[in-house]
Design a protein around this nucleic acid. Structure first.
Length: 376
RNA sequence: GCGGGUGUAGCUCAGUUGGUUAGAGCGCCAGUUUGUGGUACUGGAUGUCGUCGGUUCAAUUCCGAUCACUCGCC
């Protein structure tokens, strides 16, 4: 059986695609949402439960795992799949984003980034070559090339300089990436909100050649309208025989809009982080379970949801757990949110398969606009 | 019984050398979080300043009484 990494398109509805990504550790049905498991765990969830929501691939992170427990250690222990008991596909972020968002005292030059650990202050260097090595040690099915996530806002000159550095790093990432059957390397499009820069970035990445293409530098404060505008000008430039991944996105409505524009893969901390801060996503919009209006409500969070939190527990109980900051509250709400996100992806895939995505999106928007059910 | 201390927001407490709308932290009521630090941030509501009386143009502040709590001694 061939284990070569490849994307297979199974259907199309407008710009949206239905497909499969074949990897060394299994198949991913797209459009797909990938739960974020930064430090080798999807927070508050056992991997078996993550899989039960329908997730087929999770994220790990170069930056976090290199600092703790260390990529060499993970490699010796059999790789990240075995280490965290996730037998399915894993995508690892390259560390570029986290160096910017988490570490202080970072120094960026042509070679890479020198930074201090947010854990113990120790000094580390991350380069495209080192990032590729770490992601290979982690045994990521999908490796992301090392990039700089251009801060927003940026002038066109700043965005151009940043993007071109990321493109040189993309070439070095490709050169350093060790090809193995079933393993793929993705390039990342940058260029901020500037159309010519996005086009130049795509062109440079296609010249290098990648197994998939990510759109980076979005959902960083530009707003949904602007993000969709960038997708409208960027996605049509990408090759049709490779997966497209919108990094770090997003809210349910962002995902629906991006699928309509031809995106196949998403990751976001939204469902998991929100699960830890009391925000739940439902068919009728988001709900803050800690709000006082839920304290006497015996009804489930979302009557149409089949997750354990909705089948077995009331809003009143989830509210209580949230107020009491009980671990079970984090677990149940995270579980619900991941289940909701996977339900959404299943709905999107079904709608594409049946050629009714436009109607699905309209229904989605209308139902979200209804707002939460009336308080008792 | 005697002597001391304390009574200010739901809680723990600042403060006012007497002067417009009395503050903080926590809690409470909401909002934000997009390639993750159970995080961080933003806004909002709430007071007979223990009670009664006196002094004063003006008292939460000074004086007296009283009540409650508290510490020590008998």
């Amino acid at each position: 059986m061939s284990t070569s990494f490849h994307y297979e398109k199974l259907g199309q509805d407008g710009a949206a695609r239905l497909g499969q990504i074949h990897t060394a550790h299994g198949v991913i049905h797209t459009p797909a949402f990938m739960p974020v498991g930064t430090v080798g765990t999807v927070k508050a969830m056992a991997p078996e439960s993550v899989a039960a929501t329908g997730a087929e691939i999770v994220l790990g992170n170069t930056y976090h795992l290199m600092l703790r427990p260390g990529a060499e250690r993970v490699e010796k222990l059999g790789g990240l799949h075995q280490f965290m008991n996730w037998p399915g596909p894993i995508l690892t972020d390259s560390g570029g984003f986290q160096v910017m968002s988490l570490s202080k005292l970072r120094k960026l030059n042509e070679d890479g980034v020198t930074f201090q650990s947010h854990i113990d202050g120790s000094t580390h260097v991350l380069t495209p070559e080192r990032s590729m090595e770490i992601q290979r040690q982690l045994d990521a099915d999908i490796t992301m090339s090392f990039d700089e996530c251009t801060p927003y806002p940026a002038t066109e000159d700043q965005a151009a300089e940043s993007m071109r550095l990321s493109m040189r790093w993309a070439k070095r990432s490709k050169d350093a990436f060790v090809e193995r059957p079933g393993y793929g390397l993705f390039g990342i499009v940058q260029g901020s909100v500037y159309e010519p820069l996005r086009a130049e970035s795509v062109s440079k990445l296609r010249e290098i050649g990648f197994d998939g293409y990510a759109v980076g530098g979005l959902a960083v404060g530009e707003g949904q309208e602007e993000m969709f505008r960038i997708l409208d000008i960027t996605v049509p430039l990408l090759p049709t025989d490779r997966p497209r991944y919108l990094m770090g996105v997003g809210k349910p409505a962002d995902i629906v809009g991006a699928v309509l524009r031809g995106i196949d893969m998403f990751d976001c901390v939204m469902p998991t982080r929100s699960g830890r801060t009391g925000q739940a996503f439902t068919r009728r919009g988001s709900v803050n379970i800690r709000n006082a209006r839920h304290q006497d409500d015996p009804r489930p969070l979302d009557e149409a949801c089949g997750c354990p939190a909705c089948r077995n527990y009331s809003r009143a109980y989830l509210h209580h757990l949230g107020r009491a900051e009980e671990v079970l509250g984090l677990m149940l709400l995270t579980w619900h949110n991941l289940h909701y996100y996977q339900d959404l992806m299943r709905g999107l895939r079904g709608a594409i398969a049946e050629g009714r995505l436009t109607q699905f999106a309209a229904d989605f928007t209308a139902e979200q606009a209804l707002g939460d059910i009336e308080p008792l």
